[in-house]
């Protein structure tokens, strides 16, 4: 069965009849299952181009569906629904509603690059996963994932200081995702860390959280980076026709 027809045999598309006679043949009961007829007409023809316009998605058109990415995938091994090959197929076919069924797990790619290593066509599936996760968020299909929050907190700190001070990044991430910092395993970890550390080391670590390490003469680099990020973001929004969408939504609301 071609994979784009797999959706036809999902439970909600299957029916059995308690009493049904067709041309004199009794087809009642479980042994005779009917597939609801379904016509796919909701192709999103712009989807592939939009995802290709986001960083990482550039080479999606090269895919020839060999499945090496899914076969080598770290996340697929622990969650069989995580299927980069299938998603690339859906994107290229424009089957948005099918893709959206998996919208909440696509961001879970761990960027181990096993797919990129295995891909015979240099699709860079890892990049496609990131571009797809971005696309889902930019289009409003999903809220920002925890991973996206982490990336943002991290990048903001680098723009601001040039360096990362880990405990600061962790605290800000937990705050932004409204999680308590004192999870039992974190507490246990800190306890074990403190057991052997000399006072001098603790003082040094404490100081780092108060006075973040920074790259000096960083301000010009910081503003250049921020300017570039904003510029790219505006271009990406344009590629996804977001300004038009927002415009149309506002007109709708006004009318």
């Amino acid at each position: 069965m071609p994979i784009h027809e797999k959706s036809l045999i999902r439970p909600e598309n299957l029916t059995t009849h308690d009493e049904l006679v067709l041309d004199g043949v009794d087809v009642s009961g479980h042994w005779s299952t009917f597939i609801e007829s379904r016509v796919v007409n909701d192709y999103n023809e712009a989807m592939e181009d939009e995802i290709a316009a986001l960083p990482g998605g550039e080479y999606i058109h090269r895919c020839w569906q060999c499945g090496s990415c899914t076969n080598s995938c770290t996340v697929h091994a622990i969650n069989p629904d995580f299927n980069p090959r299938f998603w690339i197929y859906l994107i290229r076919m424009g089957m948005e509603s099918e893709l959206l069924r998996d919208k909440d797990i696509i961001w879970q790619c761990v960027s181990c690059n096993k797919c990129t290593y295995a891909c015979p066509r240099d699709v860079v599936p890892e990049g496609v996963m990131k571009a797809t996760a971005h696309w889902l968020e930019m289009k409003g299909h999903t809220p920002k994932s925890p991973s996206m929050h982490f990336d943002e907190v991290f990048t903001e700190q680098i723009v601001a200081t040039g360096k990362i001070e880990e405990s600061r990044t962790i605290r800000r991430f937990f705050k932004r995702t409204s999680q308590g910092l004192m999870q039992p395993w974190m507490v246990e970890m800190v306890k074990r860390m403190l057991k052997h550390l000399p006072i001098g080391m603790l003082t040094r670590m404490g100081l780092a959280t108060l006075v973040a390490p920074r790259t000096s003469n960083w301000s010009n680099a910081a503003s250049a980076i921020q300017e570039y990020i904003d510029e790219q973001h505006a271009e990406q929004e344009k590629a996804l026709s977001l300004p038009e969408l927002i415009d149309a939504a506002q007109k709708d609301a006004a009318a």
Binding site: P55, D151, F154, T155, I164, Q232
Partner: peptide
């Protein structure tokens, strides 16, 4: 300065 790690690459690879 920071090399950009994976997080900045996710925001923008060229940065």
């Amino acid at each position: 300065n920071c090399c950009g790690a994976m997080e900045v690459k996710n925001i923008d690879p060229k940065i």
